[in-house]
């Protein structure tokens, strides 16, 4: 008993520490999100929130579920590897509601030139033309079917009857 003589002030002090620690734990329990530390030193729920953002490009498979006729033409042509939305733009809204959201008609004179305008910086094996020299300003689709651009390769399309080289 003699060992604990005059030690009351130490216990009171220790008690203060315990109370402060409990208060800290309670506050921490409220302010730290539940999923913090679920996978690491971050808020696990953030992954789900980012994954839930809306999609704007529908993806080629979605397009081809309805547009099978175009998919067939394209599969045989030189643009078989080009995804639909590479030219037509983001159209998930159209895929969700095909009636009220309709894609704009594309201007081939602008669109084709974006890739096919000749430049020495482009890979040598990539087909390139000088648009002014090649067609004299006529839209590309006068001669080429954009879905199967090599002239004569798409027997079904009437556009491919021009004589451009």
């Amino acid at each position: 008993m003699s060992g604990l003589k005059d030690t009351g002030h130490l216990f009171r002090f220790a008690g203060l520490f315990v109370v402060a620690f409990v208060v800290f734990l309670v506050v921490r329990g409220y302010v730290v999100p539940k999923t913090f530390g679920q996978y690491g030193h971050y808020r696990g729920a953030a992954i789900g929130e980012i994954a839930a953002r809306p999609v704007k490009f529908a993806g080629r498979q979605t397009c081809e579920t309805c547009h099978t006729d175009i998919a067939d033409i394209k599969a045989k042509g030189a643009h078989a590897h080009v995804n639909c939305e590479a030219c037509h733009g983001a159209l998930a809204a159209h895929a969700d509601d095909p009636m009220s959201v309709t894609p704009a008609k594309l201007d081939t004179a602008v669109l084709c030139a974006r890739c096919h305008t000749a430049s020495a910086a482009k890979p040598k094996n990539f087909p390139q033309v000088d648009p002014a020299d090649h067609s004299g300003g006529a839209p590309c689709e006068t001669c080429h079917n954009p879905h199967s651009p090599i002239i004569g390769s798409d027997s079904g399309a009437s556009a491919a009857k021009g004589g451009a080289k």
Binding site: I50, A51, P54, F57, G59, R60, C87, F126
Partner: peptide, 22 residues
């Protein structure tokens, strides 16, 4: 985000979707 909202749904990223040459 490597289009995390797309790749978790089985789609590819927007840049890959739009790249005409692969």
């Amino acid at each position: 985000t490597l289009c995390y909202h797309r790749i978790t749904k089985g789609l590819t990223t927007a840049c890959c979707e739009a790249c005409p040459t692969g």
